[in-house]
Write a protein that binds this DNA or RNA. Structure first.
Length: 805
RNA sequence: GCCGAAGUGGUGAAAUUGGCAGACGCGUCGGACUCAAAAUCCGAUAUCCGCAAGGAUGUGUGGGUUCAAGUCCCUCCUUCGGCACCA
């Protein structure tokens, strides 16, 4: 039995003293491998079992790649700005940095305890001014290119937190952090124009190795729809536009619906006959939009805009206009053509307000429900009631109608996107300051490079100001300055946390550089990240924002690739032993990695978490599983160190399985199938236990294979096998294909598809030879007795199936 | 409602391209060692019938394709994740 505490301490100190895992980024002589983890938010509770899982996975790959001769960049840092530290500061009066750096220290210690081979010399924290200096610099470039700007937009306002939130920070109408109510409100805000990159972000998804489900989530979030924007004339002057993806149904328009919160109705108001009623509905809607949305998805409310008719642009029929809150002011044009026969929402609205329904596409039963596009597309359905287009198949009609309207100059083909601007300001203290000044004339300017970083000043009171601005706004001597000879006030909002994590993978490459984000030569060499591992919860936040910033920096020539993360893998959740997510609800089922290390050792924790199941799956914790992992390490220790079987002597019995193990483990590490790699090593260990001699070269090769998963014990075994250097840069074992092939293969024999027997035949034997052996087998004979053979299928080296009657 | 992922023994899970379902581990049972226990080592372990040889059933449901289906196609059910009046 090995002494885990002694061994782990010894090697932790060795690695630290020798800087074993430092990465010389300027060494271009070896191929590069950039292996990245999503950096943690340094919370007060420390690292959890889920962190350990993802971080072990990348560590295994990083360690293997080093042994395979790659120069490996494997950095770690801390996503250190955030609300918990600020809440702590507000309640204690201490600076949030104090709390944050204390937590970072705990995290660092835990990470080292677990034996992760990070490049510690490249560690960063986002709250460090030397870090956010470059974030402010990137903001500045975005500002100068018109991609970062201050605009009046509807935002998600959280009263409790005193700040606005991005769409991905709002879950079911509540703030992601804290669960406080969030309401819609118009405010002047800093935004990043991410919709400008919508098409490129969609296209980029086709060129990266990411989980299909995550790509799909991003596609849905971007929400591109291709359609037609169409001008609609109003009787008696004026016009408005509608957007539709179903122009083929244009003859079926029986009314239009415009958004109560949009601009169109405001312009029409003076001509509205029932103005009072309309204004009342607008007011009602603005009030409603502050309520839980699901509540108002029930019925189709609305009022007619009396006294104003619109003209169907193609049939020139006059139809009424309605207000309806199912039409959104900030999507498309804020108005829709209503074709109740072929759109379920329009259908319900028409029924609710007693409006006509005109069928223009054959094939459905519109007395019951709308015959929608997913029902009629691709099914050869034809148009009716559509003048010269009647009788055409939908797909053809779509093109012809569009052409006609475009030629008339009243329509154009356009794309619409669901993705909204990235709301970029938070009215909070603990974030990177936005490097902007406002002049008295209302103009704004970004700070000169020489004035970056703009550091956070220390305050007496960190709580947000009541007027919806941050605590910084109370610091008069910081806010009011003279800039470029003119009196100015500083922007008091700070950047969101998602900004901090949108580019951190770049600074790791050259963290001490104060002249630029990173040496261009280094960025060209090291980007993109080869492997990125982290939780799936960042699918539309961090992972989309990072892609946009990287695309932008590519446009500006700063980075060599459009996409920052070539391969992305999500680790699953480590659940409690009760199968439920670890958390406050069932504290008795929470697992603290430190406790596991204390009781079983870091190697055991790493081995167990990798053996639990596939990396991507959610897996319940099992104390007995942990014990099993520890038992295996003891078993390996006995085999290699204590049993005296390791000799400078060959053992042909083990040759095949040894080479198979090298092959399987190498492939499985590469594809992140750690559970099956471990099972193969267990099979090898079991085989060794049956032998009296374990050749020394096999023992050494096996220890190398095991090293990435359990680095401490394998370093010790390597030393005890007679080496005085670290195993970390020893060449990775290579298998010999000749040693894996067999002379004889076992073939399964089935009769009528049911397995009956096994036969041994020479490798690559001819079908005739195989069938001869098969038919001599007693069990097969018995099963064929008195039956007529209809067919014989021989799959070389695998299986034989005989069909009989 | 729409989009996506998944459903395999008592249990965590394996099963490269359709080719012996359940590798490996946990648990359980048995054996060895021991005065005994623990630890360790060896063996058994999908279910049902059978003393056994052997047979039957079996990858959420129901169908289909195929010599052959956990794997491919269709139907439905359940769980999880995402989106949700997006025109």
């Amino acid at each position: 039995m090995y002494n885990k505490d002694e061994i782990e301490k010894k090697w932790r100190e060795y690695w630290e003293k020798h800087n074993t895992f430092a990465c010389d980024v300027y060494d271009f002589s070896k191929p590069k491998y950039y292996c990245l983890d999503m950096f943690p938010y340094p919370s007060g509770v420390g690292l959890h079992a889920g962190h350990a899982e993802g971080y072990t996975a990348t560590d295994i790959v990083a360690r293997m790649k080093r042994m395979q001769g790659f120069n490996v960049l494997h950095p770690m840092g801390y996503d250190a700005f955030g609300l918990p530290a600020e809440q702590y500061a507000i309640s204690t009066g201490n600076h949030p940095a104090k709390f944050t750096y204390k937590n970072i220290e705990t995290f660092r210690e835990q990470l080292k305890l677990l034996g992760f081979s990070y490049n510690w010399e490249k560690e960063i924290a986002t709250c460090d001014p030397s870090y956010y200096k470059w974030e402010q610099w990137i903001f500045k470039q975005l500002y100068k290119d018109g991609l970062a700007k201050e605009v009046e937009v509807p935002v998600n306002w959280c009263e409790e937190l005193g700040t606005v939130l991005a769409n991905d920070e709002v879950i079911d109408g509540k703030s992601e952090r804290g669960g406080y109510p969030v309401v819609r409100k118009n405010m002047k805000q800093w935004i990043i124009d991410i919709p400008k990159y919508a098409d490129r972000l969609l296209d980029g998804l086709n060129h990266i190795d990411w989980p299909e489900s995550t790509k799909e989530i991003q596609r849905n979030w971007i929400g591109k729809s291709e359609g037609v924007e169409l001008e609609v004339e109003i009787v008696g002057g004026g016009k408005f536009s509608i957007f539709t993806t179903c122009i083929e149904t244009v003859y079926g328009i029986t009314f239009f619906v415009i958004a109560p919160d949009g601009k169109i109705i405001q312009d029409l108001l003076p001509r509205v006959e029932n103005r009072k009623e309309v204004e009342e509905y607008i007011k009602e809607t603005s009030f409603k939009s502050n309520m839980d949305r699901t509540e108002l998805n029930k019925g189709k409310t609305g009022v007619e805009v009396k006294g104003i008719k619109a003209i169907n642009p193609i049939s020139h029929k006059e139809v009424p206009i309605f207000l309806g809150d199912f039409v959104l002011g900030n999507y498309g044009t804020g108005a829709v053509m209503a074709v109740p026969a072929h759109d379920q929402r329009d259908y319900e609205y028409a029924k609710a307000h007693n409006l006509p329904i005109v069928e223009v596409i054959e094939g459905g039963d519109i007395s019951k429900q709308a015959f929608e596009k997913h029902d009629y597309l691709g099914k050869n359905c034809k148009l009716v009631n559509s003048e010269e287009f009647s009788g055409l198949v939908v797909e053809e009609a779509k093109e012809k109608i569009t052409d006609k309207l475009v030629n008339q100059g009243i329509a154009k083909r356009v794309n619409n996107y669901k993705i909204r601007e990235w709301i970029f300001a938070r009215q909070r203290y603990w974030g990177a300051p936005i490097p902007v000044v406002h002049y008295a004339d209302g103009s704004t300017d970004v700070l000169d490079d020489a004035d970056l970083p703009l550091e956070l000043p220390e305050l007496e009171d960190y709580s947000p100001a009541k007027n919806g601005s941050s605590a910084l706004s109370r610091k008069a001597d910081w806010v009011n300055i003279v800039y470029h000879g003119k009196p100015a006030t500083r922007e008091t909002s700070t950047m969101p946390g998602s900004a901090d994590s949108s580019w951190y993978f770049l600074i790791y490459i050259d963290p001490q550089n104060d002249k630029e984000i990173a040496d261009k030569k280094l960025l060209d060499h090291w980007m993109p990240v080869d492997l990125y591992v982290g939780g799936p919860e960042h699918a539309v936040g961090h992972l989309l924002y990072s892609r946009m910033w990287n695309n932008y920096l590519y446009d500006k020539g700063y980075v060599p690739c459009k996409e920052p993360f070539q391969k992305l893998v999500h680790q699953g959740m480590v659940l409690g032993a009760n199968g439920i997510k670890m958390g406050k609800r069932y504290p008795e089922f929470c697992v603290n990695p430190n406790d596991v290390v204390k009781q079983y050792g870091a190697d055991t924790l790493r081995l167990y978490e990798m053996f639990m199941g596939p990396l991507e799956a959610d897996k319940p914790w099992s104390e007995q599983g942990v014990e099993g992992a520890r038992r295996y390490l003891d078993r390996v220790w006995r085999l290699v160190i204590e049993d005296g079987k390791v000799k400078d002597q060959d053992n042909p019995n083990l040759e095949k399985i040894y080479h198979q193990t090298i092959k399987k483990v190498t492939e499985d590490y590469q594809s992140l199938n750690f559970n099956t790699a471990i099972s193969q090593m267990m099979i090898f260990t079991n085989a060794c236990y049956k032998e009296d001699v374990l050749p020394k070269y096999m023992a050494e090769g096996f220890v190398k294979l095991l090293n990435p998963i359990v680095p401490f014990i394998t370093e010790e075994m390597w030393q005890l096998l007679g080496h005085d250097n670290t195993i970390a840069y020893e060449p990775w074992p290579v298998f010999d294909p000749a040693k894996i092939v067999e002379d004889m293969v076992t073939i399964a024999v089935s009769v009528n598809g049911k397995f009956k027997a096994r036969v041994e035949v020479p490798l690559d034997a001819s079908n005739e030879e195989v069938m001869q052996v098969v038919k001599n087998n007693d069990t097969v004979k018995r099963n064929l007795d008195g039956k007529e053979i209809l067919k014989e299928i021989v799959v070389p080296n695998k299986i034989v199936n005989i069909v009989v009657k």
